[in-house]
Simulated assay, not measured.
Amino acid sequence: MNLRPPLKVALAQTVGTLPREPGLAYEPKFDGHRMVMFRQADGVVLQARSGRIVTAAFPDLAAAARELPDGTVLDGEVVVWREGRIDFAAVQGRAAATPGRAPGLAARLPASYAAFDVLAAGGTDLRPRRYAVRRERLEELLAGLGPPIQPVPMTTDPELAATWYETLPGIGVEGLVVKRLDQPYKAGTRAWRKLRHTDTRDAVVVGFTGSRQRPASLVLVLPDDDTPVVSSPLPPALRARAGAALTPLTPGGTGTAMAPGLGEVPYRSVPPELSAEVATGTTRHTVTTVLRLKDTDPGDDDGGGAGDG
Protein backbone atom coordinates (compact mmCIF):
# COMPACT_ATOMS: atom_id res chain seq x y z
CA MET A 1 0.00 0.00 0.00
CA ASN A 2 1.30 3.45 -0.90
CA LEU A 3 2.28 5.70 2.00
CA ARG A 4 0.07 8.78 2.24
CA PRO A 5 0.38 12.02 4.20
CA PRO A 6 0.47 12.90 6.97
CA LEU A 7 3.42 10.81 8.14
CA LYS A 8 5.34 11.16 11.38
CA VAL A 9 9.08 11.63 10.87
CA ALA A 10 12.06 10.14 12.66
CA LEU A 11 13.81 12.45 15.14
CA ALA A 12 17.25 12.86 16.71
CA GLN A 13 18.49 13.30 20.26
CA THR A 14 21.34 15.71 21.02
CA VAL A 15 24.72 14.30 22.06
CA GLY A 16 27.80 16.15 23.31
CA THR A 17 30.57 14.23 21.54
CA LEU A 18 30.99 12.52 18.19
CA PRO A 19 29.90 8.86 18.43
CA ARG A 20 32.56 6.54 17.04
CA GLU A 21 31.35 2.98 17.61
CA PRO A 22 31.31 0.60 14.63
CA GLY A 23 28.35 0.51 12.25
CA LEU A 24 27.54 4.22 12.10
CA ALA A 25 26.76 6.61 9.26
CA TYR A 26 27.34 10.37 9.45
CA GLU A 27 25.49 13.11 7.56
CA PRO A 28 25.80 16.92 7.67
CA LYS A 29 22.93 18.54 9.59
CA PHE A 30 21.22 21.08 7.34
CA ASP A 31 19.25 23.71 9.25
CA GLY A 32 16.23 24.05 7.01
CA HIS A 33 12.58 23.03 7.01
CA ARG A 34 11.92 19.33 7.39
CA MET A 35 9.85 18.05 4.49
CA VAL A 36 8.43 14.71 3.37
CA MET A 37 8.10 14.52 -0.41
CA PHE A 38 5.41 12.23 -1.89
CA ARG A 39 5.45 11.38 -5.61
CA GLN A 40 2.07 9.84 -6.26
CA ALA A 41 0.40 8.69 -9.45
CA ASP A 42 -1.83 11.76 -9.40
CA GLY A 43 0.88 14.31 -8.59
CA VAL A 44 3.13 15.54 -5.80
CA VAL A 45 2.42 16.33 -2.15
CA LEU A 46 4.91 18.12 0.12
CA GLN A 47 4.41 17.72 3.87
CA ALA A 48 6.05 19.70 6.69
CA ARG A 49 7.17 18.03 9.91
CA SER A 50 3.93 19.04 11.66
CA GLY A 51 1.87 17.28 8.99
CA ARG A 52 0.84 20.52 7.30
CA ILE A 53 0.71 20.31 3.50
CA VAL A 54 3.04 22.95 1.99
CA THR A 55 2.97 21.96 -1.71
CA ALA A 56 1.67 25.35 -2.84
CA ALA A 57 4.47 27.21 -1.05
CA PHE A 58 7.20 25.34 -2.97
CA PRO A 59 6.14 25.12 -6.63
CA ASP A 60 9.77 24.71 -7.71
CA LEU A 61 10.27 21.60 -5.57
CA ALA A 62 6.86 20.23 -6.51
CA ALA A 63 7.81 20.52 -10.20
CA ALA A 64 11.17 18.84 -9.61
CA ALA A 65 9.53 16.01 -7.65
CA ARG A 66 7.47 15.08 -10.69
CA GLU A 67 10.67 13.57 -12.10
CA LEU A 68 10.69 10.98 -9.31
CA PRO A 69 9.17 7.54 -9.99
CA ASP A 70 5.58 7.07 -8.83
CA GLY A 71 5.34 5.65 -5.33
CA THR A 72 8.48 7.43 -4.04
CA VAL A 73 8.46 9.02 -0.58
CA LEU A 74 11.52 10.98 0.56
CA ASP A 75 12.48 12.59 3.87
CA GLY A 76 14.79 15.58 3.93
CA GLU A 77 15.39 19.28 4.53
CA VAL A 78 14.45 22.27 2.40
CA VAL A 79 17.20 24.88 2.30
CA VAL A 80 17.79 28.15 0.48
CA TRP A 81 21.37 29.05 -0.46
CA ARG A 82 22.31 32.73 -0.50
CA GLU A 83 25.86 33.92 -1.13
CA GLY A 84 27.21 30.43 -0.51
CA ARG A 85 25.48 29.91 2.85
CA ILE A 86 22.24 28.38 4.06
CA ASP A 87 19.70 31.12 4.90
CA PHE A 88 17.04 29.82 7.27
CA ALA A 89 15.11 33.11 7.30
CA ALA A 90 14.75 32.81 3.52
CA VAL A 91 13.41 29.27 3.93
CA GLN A 92 10.82 30.51 6.40
CA GLY A 93 9.84 33.29 4.02
CA ARG A 94 9.27 30.67 1.32
CA ALA A 95 7.26 28.43 3.64
CA ALA A 96 5.03 31.30 4.75
CA ALA A 97 4.22 32.50 1.24
CA THR A 98 0.65 32.50 -0.03
CA PRO A 99 -0.01 30.50 -3.21
CA GLY A 100 -0.25 33.73 -5.20
CA ARG A 101 3.17 34.94 -4.07
CA ALA A 102 4.96 31.58 -4.01
CA PRO A 103 6.00 31.52 -7.71
CA GLY A 104 7.68 34.92 -7.43
CA LEU A 105 9.54 33.91 -4.30
CA ALA A 106 10.57 30.63 -5.95
CA ALA A 107 12.16 32.63 -8.76
CA ARG A 108 14.03 34.94 -6.38
CA LEU A 109 14.85 32.44 -3.62
CA PRO A 110 15.00 29.00 -5.24
CA ALA A 111 14.82 26.11 -2.80
CA SER A 112 16.95 22.98 -2.69
CA TYR A 113 15.93 19.66 -1.18
CA ALA A 114 18.59 17.75 0.75
CA ALA A 115 17.17 14.22 0.86
CA PHE A 116 18.50 12.01 3.64
CA ASP A 117 16.14 9.04 3.58
CA VAL A 118 13.71 7.16 1.37
CA LEU A 119 10.59 5.88 3.09
CA ALA A 120 8.99 4.22 0.05
CA ALA A 121 9.99 3.29 -3.48
CA GLY A 122 7.72 1.84 -6.14
CA GLY A 123 4.92 1.92 -3.57
CA THR A 124 6.85 -0.40 -1.20
CA ASP A 125 7.24 0.76 2.41
CA LEU A 126 11.00 0.80 3.08
CA ARG A 127 10.84 2.04 6.67
CA PRO A 128 11.38 -1.45 8.16
CA ARG A 129 14.58 -1.90 6.10
CA ARG A 130 18.05 -1.15 7.44
CA TYR A 131 19.39 2.36 6.90
CA ALA A 132 22.21 0.96 4.75
CA VAL A 133 19.63 -0.51 2.35
CA ARG A 134 17.56 2.67 2.32
CA ARG A 135 20.62 4.82 1.65
CA GLU A 136 21.63 2.69 -1.33
CA ARG A 137 18.10 2.92 -2.70
CA LEU A 138 18.06 6.69 -2.15
CA GLU A 139 21.23 7.13 -4.17
CA GLU A 140 19.84 4.94 -6.96
CA LEU A 141 16.63 6.97 -7.14
CA LEU A 142 18.39 10.34 -7.28
CA ALA A 143 21.44 9.37 -9.35
CA GLY A 144 20.09 10.82 -12.60
CA LEU A 145 17.99 13.61 -11.14
CA GLY A 146 20.34 16.36 -9.98
CA PRO A 147 19.45 19.72 -8.40
CA PRO A 148 17.30 20.86 -6.77
CA ILE A 149 16.74 17.36 -5.30
CA GLN A 150 19.93 15.69 -4.15
CA PRO A 151 21.01 13.26 -1.43
CA VAL A 152 22.90 14.70 1.53
CA PRO A 153 26.53 13.59 1.74
CA MET A 154 27.10 10.51 3.91
CA THR A 155 30.20 8.78 5.23
CA THR A 156 30.95 5.83 7.49
CA ASP A 157 34.41 7.24 8.26
CA PRO A 158 34.39 9.01 11.64
CA GLU A 159 37.54 10.95 10.73
CA LEU A 160 35.93 12.41 7.64
CA ALA A 161 32.83 13.14 9.72
CA ALA A 162 34.99 15.00 12.23
CA THR A 163 36.46 17.05 9.37
CA TRP A 164 32.97 17.92 8.16
CA TYR A 165 32.03 18.92 11.69
CA GLU A 166 34.95 21.37 11.87
CA THR A 167 34.76 22.83 8.36
CA LEU A 168 31.12 22.94 7.26
CA PRO A 169 29.92 25.66 9.70
CA GLY A 170 31.40 28.11 7.19
CA ILE A 171 28.46 27.42 4.86
CA GLY A 172 25.85 27.33 7.62
CA VAL A 173 25.89 23.58 8.37
CA GLU A 174 25.97 23.47 12.14
CA GLY A 175 26.52 19.83 12.95
CA LEU A 176 26.07 16.16 12.11
CA VAL A 177 23.33 13.55 12.24
CA VAL A 178 24.48 10.06 13.19
CA LYS A 179 22.53 6.91 12.28
CA ARG A 180 23.12 3.22 12.76
CA LEU A 181 23.55 1.33 9.51
CA ASP A 182 21.35 -1.52 10.77
CA GLN A 183 18.55 0.75 12.00
CA PRO A 184 14.99 0.84 10.58
CA TYR A 185 13.25 4.17 10.14
CA LYS A 186 11.59 4.79 13.52
CA ALA A 187 8.90 7.41 12.96
CA GLY A 188 8.14 9.63 15.92
CA THR A 189 11.11 8.49 18.04
CA ARG A 190 14.51 10.05 18.70
CA ALA A 191 16.52 7.08 17.47
CA TRP A 192 19.07 9.17 15.56
CA ARG A 193 21.72 11.34 17.20
CA LYS A 194 22.75 14.91 16.39
CA LEU A 195 25.90 16.78 17.32
CA ARG A 196 25.90 20.57 17.13
CA HIS A 197 28.71 23.07 17.66
CA THR A 198 26.72 25.15 20.15
CA ASP A 199 23.42 25.12 21.93
CA THR A 200 22.49 28.36 20.14
CA ARG A 201 20.82 28.59 16.78
CA ASP A 202 19.01 31.05 14.56
CA ALA A 203 15.21 31.21 14.58
CA VAL A 204 12.67 33.27 12.66
CA VAL A 205 10.23 35.53 14.50
CA VAL A 206 6.66 34.93 13.32
CA GLY A 207 4.76 36.68 16.12
CA PHE A 208 4.70 38.06 19.64
CA THR A 209 2.70 38.06 22.86
CA GLY A 210 1.85 41.17 24.80
CA SER A 211 2.06 44.59 23.16
CA ARG A 212 3.85 45.28 19.89
CA GLN A 213 5.82 48.14 21.49
CA ARG A 214 7.07 46.00 24.41
CA PRO A 215 6.38 42.34 23.64
CA ALA A 216 6.37 39.92 26.55
CA SER A 217 7.68 37.03 24.44
CA LEU A 218 8.46 36.27 20.83
CA VAL A 219 6.90 33.48 18.81
CA LEU A 220 9.53 31.63 16.83
CA VAL A 221 10.01 28.96 14.20
CA LEU A 222 13.16 26.89 14.72
CA PRO A 223 15.16 25.03 12.07
CA ASP A 224 13.93 21.49 11.39
CA ASP A 225 10.55 22.18 13.03
CA ASP A 226 7.69 24.13 11.50
CA THR A 227 5.58 24.43 14.68
CA PRO A 228 5.73 27.92 16.28
CA VAL A 229 6.95 28.10 19.89
CA VAL A 230 6.76 30.88 22.46
CA SER A 231 10.06 32.08 23.91
CA SER A 232 10.68 32.54 27.60
CA PRO A 233 9.78 36.07 28.80
CA LEU A 234 12.05 38.75 27.35
CA PRO A 235 14.19 40.85 29.71
CA PRO A 236 13.31 44.57 29.76
CA ALA A 237 16.11 45.74 27.46
CA LEU A 238 15.31 43.09 24.89
CA ARG A 239 11.59 43.92 25.07
CA ALA A 240 12.37 47.49 23.98
CA ARG A 241 14.69 46.29 21.19
CA ALA A 242 12.09 43.77 19.98
CA GLY A 243 9.39 46.42 20.03
CA ALA A 244 11.47 48.71 17.84
CA ALA A 245 12.12 45.86 15.39
CA LEU A 246 8.48 44.75 15.28
CA THR A 247 6.96 48.19 14.81
CA PRO A 248 7.76 48.56 11.07
CA LEU A 249 6.38 45.09 10.24
CA THR A 250 2.88 44.79 8.82
CA PRO A 251 0.63 43.25 11.48
CA GLY A 252 -0.92 39.92 10.67
CA GLY A 253 -3.66 37.84 12.18
CA THR A 254 -3.80 35.88 15.39
CA GLY A 255 -2.76 32.35 16.19
CA THR A 256 -1.86 30.08 19.07
CA ALA A 257 1.52 28.58 19.95
CA MET A 258 2.93 26.37 22.68
CA ALA A 259 4.41 28.13 25.71
CA PRO A 260 6.45 26.02 28.17
CA GLY A 261 4.41 25.22 31.24
CA LEU A 262 1.38 27.18 29.98
CA GLY A 263 0.18 25.21 26.96
CA GLU A 264 -1.33 27.01 23.97
CA VAL A 265 -1.34 30.81 24.23
CA PRO A 266 -2.62 33.40 21.72
CA TYR A 267 -0.24 35.62 19.75
CA ARG A 268 -0.21 38.25 17.00
CA SER A 269 1.59 37.26 13.83
CA VAL A 270 4.12 39.26 11.80
CA PRO A 271 5.83 38.57 8.45
CA PRO A 272 8.92 36.34 8.83
CA GLU A 273 11.43 39.16 8.31
CA LEU A 274 13.14 39.21 11.71
CA SER A 275 15.67 36.65 12.99
CA ALA A 276 16.84 35.93 16.52
CA GLU A 277 19.67 33.96 18.06
CA VAL A 278 18.17 31.59 20.61
CA ALA A 279 19.27 28.97 23.10
CA THR A 280 17.21 25.90 23.81
CA GLY A 281 17.32 23.96 27.04
CA THR A 282 15.19 21.34 28.75
CA THR A 283 14.01 21.11 32.33
CA ARG A 284 10.51 19.73 32.59
CA HIS A 285 9.77 21.50 29.32
CA THR A 286 11.87 22.63 26.37
CA VAL A 287 12.59 26.33 26.93
CA THR A 288 13.61 28.67 24.11
CA THR A 289 15.44 31.79 25.27
CA VAL A 290 16.04 34.74 22.96
CA LEU A 291 19.68 35.86 23.32
CA ARG A 292 19.64 38.68 20.79
CA LEU A 293 17.85 39.93 17.71
CA LYS A 294 19.84 39.70 14.51
CA ASP A 295 20.21 42.60 12.10
CA THR A 296 18.06 41.92 9.06
CA ASP A 297 17.29 43.84 5.92
CA PRO A 298 13.51 43.68 5.34
CA GLY A 299 14.15 44.18 1.63
CA ASP A 300 16.00 40.87 1.46
CA ASP A 301 12.91 38.75 1.99
CA ASP A 302 9.42 39.20 0.64
CA GLY A 303 7.75 36.72 2.95
CA GLY A 304 4.32 37.73 4.15
CA GLY A 305 1.97 36.44 6.81
CA ALA A 306 2.91 34.18 9.66
CA GLY A 307 3.73 30.66 8.71
CA ASP A 308 4.24 27.44 10.56
CA GLY A 309 5.94 25.60 7.79
Rank of each mutant, 00 (worst) to 15 (best):
V54W: 12
A102F: 08
S112E: 14
Y113E: 02
Q92P: 07
P69A: 09
I53L: 15
V36M: 05
R101C: 09
A48H: 04
L68I: 11
A62V: 02
R39L: 00
P22M: 01
P110K: 03
I86G: 03
D31K: 14
V54K: 11
G84K: 07
V79I: 10
G93C: 09
L24G: 01
A25F: 05
A114L: 15
R108P: 08
E27G: 03
A102E: 03
A95W: 07
L109C: 08
S50K: 10
E77L: 01
P103K: 13
P103L: 08
D31G: 14
H33S: 11
P99H: 03
G76M: 07
L68A: 10
T98N: 13
G104N: 03
H33G: 06
A102T: 11
L46Q: 05
G32E: 11
A107G: 05
D42S: 04
P28T: 00
H33R: 12
G93R: 04
K29H: 10
P28R: 02
G93Q: 12
R66M: 13
R85W: 10
Q92A: 15
V36N: 11
R85H: 06
F38E: 03
E83Q: 15
A56Q: 14
Y113T: 12
V79N: 05
R85F: 09
P59A: 12
M37F: 15
L46G: 05
R82K: 09
P99L: 06
S50C: 14
Y113D: 09
I53P: 09
W81K: 05
A65H: 00
A64P: 03
H33V: 10
V73R: 10
V44I: 09
A95F: 12
P99F: 08
L74Q: 04
F58W: 13
A90W: 07
Q40V: 12
D70Q: 04
V45D: 02
L24N: 02
A63K: 11
A107N: 04
E27Y: 00
R34W: 08
T72K: 00
Q92K: 08
A64T: 04
A62W: 04
L74S: 07
S50V: 13
A111D: 00
D60L: 10
L74H: 00
A111S: 07
K29W: 10
L46E: 04
V36G: 11
F58I: 08
L105W: 09
V73H: 05
L68F: 08
A90H: 10
